[in-house]
Nucleic acid binder design. Structure first.
Length: 552
RNA sequence: GCGCCCAUAGCUCAGUCGGAUAGAGCAACUGCCUUCUAAGCAGUGGGUCGCAGGUUCGAGUCCUGCUGGGCGCGCCA
C-alpha cells in the first residue's frame, strides 16, 4: 500500500515537474514525498517547490500552487496544503488508511515485506570468529547486526545466504593445537608446559579431557600438533554454533580457510595478481603494490617463510564470493579490522570486481556498564563475559534487542542493569506488552462475541477520529521503515519505529475504551485496529527475531 | 604522524540519509487502578546539537579547519 501510494504521488510530481521545466533537464528523483515529522503538517510532504524555485526563478509558494490541482485530483488525496516557505503537504484520503488496515489483516506476517529486490541474491558474512575459543560480547554485536541485516534484506526480496568464514589454518590454529596437546599430556602426568602465548582458558582443559575420553592415551606419542588442532577446532566450532543457535542465529553455510589452500584458490589468486603486475618479490617475501592505490606502504602477501599472511586467503575468499554470482555482498566485522578492508578492496579493484556490490559494516566496540562499573572488553584481554553468559542471564530477546537498537557505527555502552530489569523500564518488555495486551483484548472480544469480520465489514467512519487516524497512518508507514532499514543497513530504524508505535498504542488504550458494551459498532471497528497494530508489532519484532508473547 | 568512527538533556541513545517549534527512555518531581493486563497513562523541569568558519531559501544533518574520546596503521590473525 505505502509504495503504491507514494510511487503514484511521486509520478504525478515528476510529470508536473517535466511540464514546468521542458527546457532545463531537472532531476525529478530528488523531489519526492516523505512522511511529515509533525502531524500538524499533514501526512506526506515534499519540498519540490523549494527545490525548483531557483531553476524556475519563482516564489516557492507560487510554484507549489501549480502542483496543487494535479495532486488534489488523485483519489488517494483528501487535501493538499501549502505551508511555510513552500512545503506541499498532503492529507491522505480515508480510503488509503482503511485499505492499509485491511491489507495488514489480509497479508498478516507478509505485511511490510516488499519485492523491490526480488530475484537478487545477497551474501551476508558475519561473526567469522576463529575457532580458538568461545564467543564473547564483541562477537554478539556482530552476530546481531549481521543476522538482523540478513533478515531485513530478505524482507525486501533478497534471497539471502548467511555465511561464517573461519580460519582453520595458520599460526593461531597451530597455537590452539599445541595448547590442547600440552593439556592432554598433563592429563597423563607428563610434564608438558603450555607453549609461550598459548591459550590459557579452562576450555582448553575441557577439550583435552574430551580427547582423553574418546581416544584414551593413543595420542601420547603423537608429535605433530595437527591432530590436536583438528579435534579442538571441531569441538569449538560446535560450541560456537550452539551458542549462536541459542541467540537464534542460524547460518546457511560455513566456509573454511583451509579449503582455499587445498583447492588451490590461494595459489591461483597469487598467480593472477602476479600476472597483472600487482606483486613483486623482495627480501624473500611477495608484496602487493597497495601504494598504487593510496596505501602508505606495500603489504606482504606471502612471508619469507613461504606462509601466506591473513590477507591472502581473504582475497581469494572474496574472489570466490564474486564468482558465486551474488548481487550484494555484506561483510560484518569489528571496526578494528578496518585496515584489512582496504587491502582486500585494493586486490578486488585490481581484479576489476565491482566494489559497489560490496558493503562492509564495521561495528564499533562494546563496553558493559554493570552496577555503575564500566567493564571494557577487547579480544586481547581475558574475557569473562561470553555470549553464553549473556544469553543465560538476559535471554535472547533482550540481548538481540539491545544490540539491534543502536547504530552499529557508534561505540556502545551496554546498560547491563537496564537489560536485566524485567519491568517497564526495559524497552523490550514495553514492546512485548503491546502484543500481550492486544492478545488479551482479543480474548475478551471473543468472550463478548466480537470477531474479525472476514469481509472486513465494520463501520470505517469510527476509525477516522484523529486518534485512530494517527495510528493507521503509523501502520501505513511501516513498510517504508523496513525498506529504509534494509537499504541503509541500519537495524536501529526498526526499534525506533516500534517504540513509537508502542507509545501510541498504550496512550490510545488509556484514552479510549476499545471494547465497549454500549457501543458494538465502535467496538468492532476499534478491535480491527488493535489487531492490525498487534500484527505490525509482531512483524517488526519478527524482523529482529524477538518473541512476541501472547501473555505476560 | 597517517587513516577510520564518534561527540545531541544529568545518564544511555534516536533523529526516516538538507526541512517547519531538536525527540525517546532512564534518573528527579506531581497526579491516575471498582473498567479491555498499572510490565500502563498523563503532566513538570531539563539543550549554545563539542568549537569556529563555509555552502543555501533553510544545517543536528553536507564541506573545511580545530578540540576531545575510541580503534587501527606487523613478514599477527
Amino acid at each position: 500500500m505505502y509504495f503504491e501510494i507514494v510511487d503514484h504521488l511521486n509520478t504525478v510530481l515528476a510529470e508536473t515537474i517535466s511540464t514546468l521545466t521542458p527546457e532545463t533537464p531537472f532531476d525529478a528523483a530528488s523531489c519526492t514525498f516523505v512522511a511529515t515529522k509533525d502531524t500538524t503538517h499533514g501526512d506526506l510532504t515534499t519540498n519540490a517547490a523549494m527545490v525548483l524555485a531557483k531553476t524556475l526563478k519563482k516564489n516557492p509558494r507560487e510554484i507549489a500552487a501549480m502542483f496543487q490541482e494535479k495532486l488534489t485530483a488523485s483519489p488517494h488525496v483528501e487535501k493538499v496544503m501549502i505551508a511555510g516557505p513552500g512545503f506541499i503537504n498532503i492529507r491522505l484520503s480515508g480510503t488509503v488508511l482503511i485499505d492499509t488496515l485491511k491489507s495488514i489483516l489480509k497479508e498478516k506476517e507478509h505485511y511490510g515485506r516488499s519485492f523491490r529486490f526480488s530475484g537478487k541474491k545477497a551474501l551476508v558474512e558475519f561473526v567469522s570468529a576463529n575457532p580458538t575459543g568461545p564467543l564473547h560480547v564483541g562477537h554478539v554485536r556482530g552476530a546481531v547486526v549481521g543476522d538482523t541485516t540478513a533478515e531485513l534484506l530478505r524482507a525486501v526480496g533478497y534471497e539471502v545466504t548467511r555465511e561464517y568464514y573461519y580460519n582453520d589454518a595458520g599460526v593461531q590454529m597451530q597455537m590452539l593445537g599445541r595448547s590442547v596437546q600440552a593439556r592432554y599430556r598433563q592429563l597423563f602426568g607428563v610434564d608438558s608446559p603450555l607453549p609461550e602465548n598459548g591459550y590459557k582458558g579452562d576450555y582448553i582443559r575441557y577439550i583435552a579431557a574430551g580427547l582423553k575420553s574418546s581416544r584414551g592415551d593413543s595420542l601420547l606419542r603423537e608429535e605433530k600438533w595437527e591432530p590436536f588442532t583438528e579435534y579442538a577446532a571441531d569441538v569449538l566450532m560446535n560450541i560456537i554454533m550452539d551458542d549462536l543457535r541459542r541467540l537464534r542465529v542460524l547460518f546457511d553455510a560455513t566456509f573454511s580457510e583451509r579449503s582455499l589452500h587445498t583447492s588451490g584458490a590461494v595459489a591461483r589468486t597469487l598467480k593472477q595478481l602476479a600476472e597483472k603486475g600487482a606483486t613483486y618479490e623482495q627480501d624473500g617475501a611477495i608484496w602487493l603494490r597497495t601504494t598504487d592505490h593510496g596505501d602508505e606502504k606495500d603489504r606482504v602477501l606471502v612471508k619469507s617463510d613461504g606462509e601466506p599472511t591473513y590477507v591472502t586467503p581473504d582475497i581469494a575468499y572474496h574472489c570466490d564470493k564474486y564468482d558465486r554470482g551474488f548481487d550484494l555482498l555484506v561483510n560484518v566485522m569489528g571496526h578494528d579490522h578496518h585496515s584489512q578492508v582496504e587491502r582486500v578492496k585494493t586486490a578486488l579493484r585490481i581484479f576489476g570486481h565491482n566494489l559497489d556490490r560490496l558493503q562492509y559494516l564495521l561495528n564499533q566496540m562494546v563496553s558493559i556498564q554493570r552496577e555503575g562499573e564500566k567493564v571494557k572488553l577487547s579480544t586481547r584481554e581475558g574475557q569473562f563475559m561470553t555470549l553464553a553468559e549473556m544469553v543465560d542471564e538476559l535471554g535472547a530477546d533482550v540481548t538481540r534487542y539491545f544490540f539491534a537498537q543502536r547504530s552499529y557505527k557508534a561505540q556502545m555502552i551496554f546498560d547491563w542493569d537496564l537489560a536485566k530489569k524485567q519491568s517497564m523500564d526495559n524497552p523490550v518488555y514495553y514492546l512485548q506488552y503491546v502484543h500481550a495486551r492486544a492478545c488479551s483484548m482479543e480474548e475478551k472480544a471473543i468472550e463478548r462475541g466480537i470477531g474479525v469480520s472476514p469481509a472486513m465489514e465494520f463501520d470505517t467512519s469510527i476509525l477516522m477520529g484523529e486518534k485512530e487516524r494517527l495510528l493507521l497512518l503509523k501502520l501505513f508507514y511501516y513498510p517504508s521503515f523496513v525498506s529504509d532499514a534494509a537499504e541503509r543497513f541500519e537495524t536501529q530504524l526498526i526499534p525506533t519505529y516500534l517504540e513509537d508505535l508502542a507509545k501510541m498504542f498504550h496512550t490510545y488504550y488509556q484514552a479510549q475504551r476499545v471494547l465497549d458494551q454500549d457501543d458494538p459498532a465502535g467496538s468492532l471497528a476499534r478491535f480491527h485496529l488493535v489487531l492490525a497494530i498487534r500484527q505490525v508489532m509482531r512483524n517488526g519484532l519478527g524482523l529482529l527475531r524477538v518473541n512476541a508473547p501472547e501473555r505476560m
